[in-house]
């Protein structure tokens, strides 16, 4: 318990300034909505017996769609899926990215060089194209598959960033000392180096999480999402497929896009705050 408290205190140290706090507040709001979604949502999930194309009113704050579903309720249930995909896929990406990055950066030699060459190769091929070909050949698309596809294909850029950070850490005194003390490579990599690059890892985690949100939306929009699940991406995809623009149903188009934007904005603010705080080298990262 005490340890947990000190970890929490450390994390709080990492998140600095107004920007970071604002970002955290945004993310926190979405998490609350996701957790208590079924209590907050005014109507049941996928209930389709309302009148179609209703504009916003007191009974339907965000109106209804062409199927007669309450959009606010759909949005709230969609938060669960979108957040789940973002966090789980983001975590998978981070694990692989950190693993590959630290090993490639610490080991150097043919292992490090080889790993990075492979990363460079795949970095050129657009990730979305890879996701499309993987997703379309899968027998079925569920939320799990979406998470796996996004999580397994997005770590390349992150691995590069972690690698360069590890390479500069490798030269510092404490690593040398650990080596002298007879620590094994694994221990040095994950006990000594990793804790020292936590800010960079966190900033990257935040960035890949936003990318996961956007990738989920993109895949859903392309018709590669889980057709039975509700997410912000599928809501937008349905809106477009049912010509919401031509019905001037802005209440069907604006909320999902704004929700995606707000969540990602929150994550980016937190990441930017962490980088500001540690004056970390941004490389070419757009943060």
């Amino acid at each position: 318990m005490k340890k947990l408290k000190s970890i929490l205190a450390y994390l709080w140290e990492l998140i600095p300034g107004t920007k970071g706090v604002l970002g955290l507040a945004i993310i926190f709001c979405f998490i609350v909505i996701a957790i208590f979604g079924s209590y907050i949502a005014p109507y049941e999930k996928n209930y389709i017996a309302f009148e179609a194309w209703l504009s916003p009113s007191f009974t339907h704050w965000l109106g209804t769609d062409s199927y007669g579903q309450d959009i606010l309720s759909q949005m709230i249930y969609g938060t669960q899926t979108s957040l789940l995909v973002a966090i789980v896929a983001g975590s998978i990406t981070t694990c692989i990215g950190v693993l590959v990055g630290i090993v490639a950066g610490y080991k150097g030699g043919w292992i490090g060089e080889g790993l990075m060459r492979i990363v460079d190769l795949f970095l050129i091929i657009p990730t979305l194209a890879l996701m499309i070909i993987l997703a379309s050949f899968l027998p079925s698309m569920g939320v799990t598959n979406t998470i796996l596809i996004i999580g397994l294909l997005s770590w390349l850029y992150m691995a590069r960033s972690i690698r360069s950070q590890t390479m500069s850490e490798r030269e510092s005194g404490y690593v040398e000392a650990a080596r002298m003390a007879g620590m094994g490579d694994l221990e040095i990599m994950f006990r000594e180096i990793m804790p020292n690059i936590i800010p960079v890892i966190l900033a990257n985690l935040v960035l890949v999480t936003t990318q996961a949100v956007l990738a989920e939306a993109g895949l859903s929009f392309l018709g590669l999402g889980d057709p039975s699940a509700v997410s912000w991406g599928t809501i937008l995809s349905l809106a477009h497929a049912n010509n919401a623009v031509l019905f001037n149903a802005w209440w069907w188009i604006l909320p999902p896009g704004l929700a995606i934007a707000c969540l990602c904005f929150g994550f980016i603010l937190v990441g930017n705050g962490i980088l500001d705080r540690f004056q970390a080298n941004r490389g070419n990262a757009a943060l």
């Binding site: 936003t210 623009v245 188009i253 896009g257 995606i260 934007a261």
Partner: peptide, 28 residues
């Protein structure tokens, strides 16, 4: 930061809504 948080296609939809549907400046 905000633009980086928005899906490409959503920007497209918004643009169509404003400039094609409402203002009728561009084809749909």
């Amino acid at each position: 930061f905000f633009l980086n948080s928005v899906p490409y296609f959503w920007i497209g939809i918004i643009m169509i809504m404003i400039f094609s549907f409402h203002l009728d400046l561009f084809p749909l």
